[in-house]
Write a protein that binds this DNA or RNA. Sequence first.
DNA 1: CGTGCCATTACCCAGTTGGATAAACCCAGT
DNA 2: ACTGGGTTTATCCAACTGGGTAATGGCACG
Lengths: 220, 220
Amino acid sequence: MSEASSQAVVRVLIVEDDPMMQLGLEQSLSSQPGIEVVGRADDGYFAVEETLKLKPDIVVMDIGLPRLDGIAATQKIKKSLPEVRIVMLTSHTTENEVIAALSAGADAYCVKGTTVERLLAAIEAAWEGASYLDPLVARLVMDHLKSPTNTADAIAVGQLSQRELEVLKLMVEGRSNPEIATALYLSPNTVKTHVRGIMNKLAVDDRVQAAVVALRAGLV
Amino acid sequence: MSEASSQAVVRVLIVEDDPMMQLGLEQSLSSQPGIEVVGRADDGYFAVEETLKLKPDIVVMDIGLPRLDGIAATQKIKKSLPEVRIVMLTSHTTENEVIAALSAGADAYCVKGTTVERLLAAIEAAWEGASYLDPLVARLVMDHLKSPTNTADAIAVGQLSQRELEVLKLMVEGRSNPEIATALYLSPNTVKTHVRGIMNKLAVDDRVQAAVVALRAGLV
DNA sequence: CGTGCCATTACCCAGTTGGATAAACCCAGT
DNA sequence: ACTGGGTTTATCCAACTGGGTAATGGCACG
């Protein structure tokens, strides 16, 4: 299982504001063959600075940090050095924070209190460019993937005619019927007819629901 | 790194329609200490049947299968036995298939042609309830997470008061002001005031745009 | 060559919406 | 004690919305 870490040295930067935690982390990691801790940072700004200076292979990043939080730091780092892998190690497990961290570019996500083995698995996965998600957050993320486009709604939207689609898009932008009429060089009456056609096909009672269906269908 | 597989035996079911591939997989896995291959299946229906009968810890699942594809099989298995971990092992790397597989309940995703070590890492991660994503698909999935919630909108929505949030949620459901009034035991006039408050804070001109902002902000 | 679907326009009407404005109350922080 | 924000209520009014109904022309499919 340790083919990667045993054949080359992985250079790790630790970003953690709690001194105790930082020390513990460093002990756990540097005692590991194949891992070298090349630096530490205790806030987001230092994290970015040190990363740019040291160019580590992996950054082990906390979220709750002074000055600049770990998510923002991750974004900054990924912007300048996309090849640096970032492993989040934090106690935050709310959906918003997890998703935000991964969207920001984190490659793996570990929850504090986990075993060292899991952190090592995460580091290894990240180092290969793969992704590792802690059991506590894995289902959260997978469930999140379900939402973007609702198939049923997408099918309904598919029933619309070309013209109706154009009208619907403008409706989603919040345009009123008269505005849509001007935009499409139509009479307001025509637009009203289309709007009613749309609402019928989508089986909704007003334009707000029509917009909601459109969005859920992936009509971004 | 192999604490899990070295201390207990992981019972694996292999689902793969190509006989050569199936054989190769079985050789690779069963030669591994801590892994026992308890069964094989070469189409989706057998996969579900065998899983129900053998109750393996892990199912290594292909996507392109006769009769019932691996994604559908995954859904069926997860419905009856959620505790069975499923590792996708396939050559399909299109966004749709990857997302569909993970939404269906797959715990890890490996791409065919990868090293045995990566597959083992995936199996180990899955066995712990964690998630492992192959380098070839990891970024795909992470990027997919970005769309749902728009931060700017989320911040704007965060400015709303508790009451305004309640009203906004009902607005998204397409309720009219009178309907919202009844639902919250308020006067229609009050609702109107809140609606205007919401539109002001979100800097929009009508309830459709308010609903759109709400959705983009992740107010599902 | 109809029949059906789409796109276009039109009119009427009841109901809803959004803007402007005002006032009451409660509660928290200064 | 005062200020500020949130919640509640209210009224007036112009504009927009959604339902019903109907007519025209184009275009494609059988």
